[in-house]
């Protein structure tokens, strides 16, 4: 919160905090950079694919955190901390749903897929 925000109007709004012009602009500058870099990496291909993939994913996670703090105003005080609690809980659920699905389906794929069409046909009994 910058100094000009400390008006009486804002005092009773601590329940759901909102940003100042400065925090919105900082958030916008950060997310613009965090968007531009991965697009630049992917479109120019300056790094090899593996390194690009890791960097792009890392920058995406950073950008999600930036948006959550500067645009969604999630912090330890908003709604008595319950906003953050719900957010962390959801983040854990999302992680479990996505990584769990990929993990299970990868193994299912490996164990149950028929051999590719160009492979030798199974011997007849």
């Amino acid at each position: 919160m910058s100094a000009h925000d400390a008006t009486p109007v804002d005092v009773h709004e601590a329940g759901h905090s909102h940003g100042s012009r400065r925090s919105y602009l900082i958030g916008f500058a950060l997310s613009a950079a965090l968007t531009a870099i991965p697009f630049w990496l992917a479109m120019t291909g300056v790094l090899e694919s593996g390194a690009t993939a890791i960097l792009v994913v890392l920058l995406a996670f950073v950008q999600i955190v930036v948006h959550t703090i500067f645009f969604l105003h999630v912090n330890t005080k908003a709604e008595g901390g319950w906003m953050l609690m719900a957010f962390v809980f959801t983040a854990v659920m999302i992680l479990i749903v996505i990584s769990g699905s990929l993990w299970i389906m990868y193994h299912l794929h490996g164990n149950m897929m028929p051999p590719p069409l160009d492979a030798a046909p199974p011997a007849k009994m």
């Binding site: 992917a42 995406a60 948006h67 959550t68």
Partner: peptide
């Protein structure tokens, strides 16, 4: 929705277009 779009452009478009 903007946060969700970060996931979309990263995991669908950027990773999808890598060789």
């Amino acid at each position: 929705l903007d946060v969700v779009w970060i996931g979309v452009f990263t995991f669908v478009y950027l990773l999808g277009s890598l060789p």
